[in-house]
Design a protein around this nucleic acid. Sequence first.
DNA 1: CAGTGGTCTAGACCACCAA
DNA 2: TGGTGGTCTAGACCACTGC
Lengths: 242, 242
Amino acid sequence: MNAVAPTFLPLYRQIKDLVLRSLEGGEWKPGEAIPSELELAARYRVSQGTVRKAIDELAGENLLVRRQGRGTYVATHSEPREEFRFLRLAPDEGEPGPYESRAFECRRGRASVEAARILDLRPGDAIIGIRRVLLFGGRPTVLEDIVLPGTIFKGLTADRLAEHPGSIYHLYETEFGTRMIRADEKLRAAAADASAATRLGVPAGTPLLSVERVAFTYGDRPVEWRRGLYRTDQHYYRNVLS
Amino acid sequence: MNAVAPTFLPLYRQIKDLVLRSLEGGEWKPGEAIPSELELAARYRVSQGTVRKAIDELAGENLLVRRQGRGTYVATHSEPREEFRFLRLAPDEGEPGPYESRAFECRRGRASVEAARILDLRPGDAIIGIRRVLLFGGRPTVLEDIVLPGTIFKGLTADRLAEHPGSIYHLYETEFGTRMIRADEKLRAAAADASAATRLGVPAGTPLLSVERVAFTYGDRPVEWRRGLYRTDQHYYRNVLS
DNA sequence: CAGTGGTCTAGACCACCAA
DNA sequence: TGGTGGTCTAGACCACTGC
């Protein structure tokens, strides 16, 4: 928006961009190790310290994971520590536990004007719509509507959703080569309508937490739009202000 | 909790702790500049690079602010950029604007068992309870109950709240020498009870966003507990997952 | 033991700001 | 113009991992 053109781009920033391009292009895949700092320094003709600073920033943005004595790895949504990075629901009592996802709808459609604006498409472009419920301890707790660009996620069906273990972002990553790296959320309180009430097993009118999310992949490209309705009678949405 | 005793404490970590102690002890006050990197390097008998890494971390935690060509400053809640770090309410249309705070209650009391647990006090210890409404564009939007330890905030009255411009954290900082550096929040959806409905000018039963916060000062000491009820018909709570 | 990331240093130079 | 933070280098050594 109001970004000022930098008068000067430090070397380590340029190196960071080069590494980013390799990540984006799939030269190193999620879960794999990238070359050692000394190798990268030789490749780019800079000192180890400069590579180090570039990698530091990428690790800070959760794109890479450093492991002392072993190497630096491309982050992946299959790691347990990533499991609750994008799902900030915690139970009132005890630790966040496993959940079950039940997708009850998955169909192709056309982007509305709003969906097109948000996902940077044109109205009428192919999209895929998913509706699902998340169950914690067998209890329906989250009802979600997910909208995806059809071109990227072509071939995504309810069956493939059901087959796939783990988080949906893990599926995006392994099956469609699209890694989510950041998301913006807008939270509101809303009353359950008849449909949501039925799906979540609460009376109509029950206050629910409405969570609208736009998720981005490399280069700040929006590739997922979803709206969730959360029951918050036995869970809460946790956040840290720092 | 399950932190492993580090077998080895890097030098820059020790320097960081020393700087932290000076901040905590008030050697450098909010808004002031701390000594230059070279001065600190001389004081602690380490290289500039080591001081640099320590300061980098403190700046990353929003305790210090670097300003190229000028120096490094102690962060303060009086800066505009801090204004919305702890208030994540944004209007549906337009940019976050100024708001007005009306404290309609401010009284001394005794800590309940729950308040004592959360604020690390003993039940019956002195506390101060504040109730206030935040107005955006003249419209009541947030209703908050704030609980503070009486020993730290002795002498806080409704008048002083009313006199003070800017955010309440700015007041804590300037009047009571207590700087908030981090907060945990738990979000839920709740229905407006009669009292909240009146204060916020909505029908009873209206879904509201419930935000419970525990805020911490240096050393992870909890010093504020509050619960807010947010109208979300023209505003939303923004969050970034990264 | 070899290889990786992590720390620390000393010094040079650059970009930015205030006076 | 001097002082501050910001970048970059080269090299030494330490801590951790896996073979």
